[in-house]
């Protein structure tokens, strides 16, 4: 029986593992954290339909049951190819052998303190979108707003589309996340005004535009077209941001109770490390480069090494699931072709 090692236990890794197991391959899923779910496991509700993130993770976990060998708290130390097989050495000193590897090592969130002018880690009332999801989950939202100004700001493109931090690409999902979080904030704190500070609103997915309209129509979310240049803190602990309202053509200063930074995607440490270990190619955005951007999106340049999910660039959950399934098909095709050749 063919043997596949999937590295990374987020959405891409879980989905592809389950699918591969369903197809009758022997699958080992390696995850460095002590639990599965990746970033989505930290999330509260998802766009565009406000569905709890938990549902996705639970359903993916259920499908793994008994069919996939899951190794938690485990990291890959080295990978060696011999006789068409990969010997994967784990940090537990165990060595696994596989006929194919699937990298689903995903992304990290851009470290917001690198954008110092926004004051993350310096001011008390500057948080990231991920922090906000955690706050939603804990139900402590009222505790983090002071009630001074009754205003909350959401900054788009933090660490994305910014050559100053070396990330010139768009992280794709932050725009709609910003809209979603604005709605959730208005829902939870009806007396608060919520402002989205954006450069471009990229509502590319199905129903995203509806969500944008809902935010305006139903929730009165404010959209200011301008990128925040800097934030400071006033004596009361409010965050004061400076932005140009480019459509009004005037600079704008606004005090807020809370400033939320929509941090973008960067290749995860694991993605960079696995790419280095296997000497794979990276794109100019430092994510892994598929063998062909159109036709071989799940192939690496190495035979038997496949890619799925956000290790090849920012993706939504739905796209990640589609991508994971595509990778599974490619792996199956790879095994089938190999068998034919040998016979």
């Amino acid at each position: 029986m063919k043997n596949v090692i999937v590295i990374g236990g987020g959405v891409a890794g879980m989905e592809s593992s389950a699918q591969l197991a369903d197809m009758g391959y022997q699958v080992t899923l390696v995850e460095k954290e002590s639990k599965l779910g990746g970033h989505v496991d930290q999330w509260d509700f998802l766009f565009p339909n406000h569905r709890p993130a938990r549902e996705i993770i639970d359903s993916l976990k259920q499908r793994l049951n008994y069919k996939v060998e899951v190794k938690l708290g485990t990291e890959v130390e080295s990978m060696q190819r011999n006789n068409g097989q990969y010997a994967v050495k784990l940090n537990s000193t165990e060595v696994l052998h596989a006929d194919a590897l699937l990298l689903a090592s995903g992304f990290d969130l851009f470290p917001a303190q690198k954008k110092e002018e926004y004051g993350y880690g310096i001011y008390n009332h500057v948080i990231t979108a991920a922090d906000l999801e955690e706050i939603f989950r804990s139900g402590n939202l009222r505790k983090v707003v002071s009630g001074n100004t009754h205003r909350i700001g959401i900054v788009h493109c933090v660490g994305s589309r910014d050559e100053k931090v070396g990330n010139e690409y768009c992280s794709k999902v932050c725009c709609v996340t910003g809209v979603k979080q604005a709605i959730r904030l208005r829902e939870a704190l009806p007396e608060y005004e919520v402002f989205n500070f954006y450069m471009d609103l990229r509502m590319f997915g199905r129903y995203f535009e509806d969500l944008y309209r809902e935010a305006q129509e139903k929730w009165g979310v404010q959209f200011v077209r301008g990128r925040v240049s800097e934030a400071s803190e006033d004596v009361k602990g409010n965050v004061v941001v400076k932005v140009e309202d480019t459509l009004a053509g005037r600079p704008m200063k606004i005090s807020l109770d809370l400033l939320i930074l929509l941090t973008g995607f960067i290749p995860s440490k694991g993605t960079s490390r696995l790419g280095d270990l296997l000497q794979l190619e990276f794109g100019s955005d430092r994510f892994l480069k598929p063998a062909d951007e159109h036709l071989l999106r799940n192939h690496s340049k190495l035979e038997g090494v496949f890619l799925a999910g956000a290790c090849t660039g920012p993706r939504s959950i739905a796209e990640t699931i589609t991508d994971a399934r595509a990778a599974v098909l490619e792996i199956a095709a790879f095994f089938r072709d190999k068998v034919t050749v040998h016979e």
Binding site: E117, I122, Y123, E230, A231, S232
Partner: peptide, 9 residues
């Protein structure tokens, strides 16, 4: 200096 608020702070 206003772009390095950590110093000001």
């Amino acid at each position: 200096g206003h772009l390095t608020p950590s110093v000001i702070h």
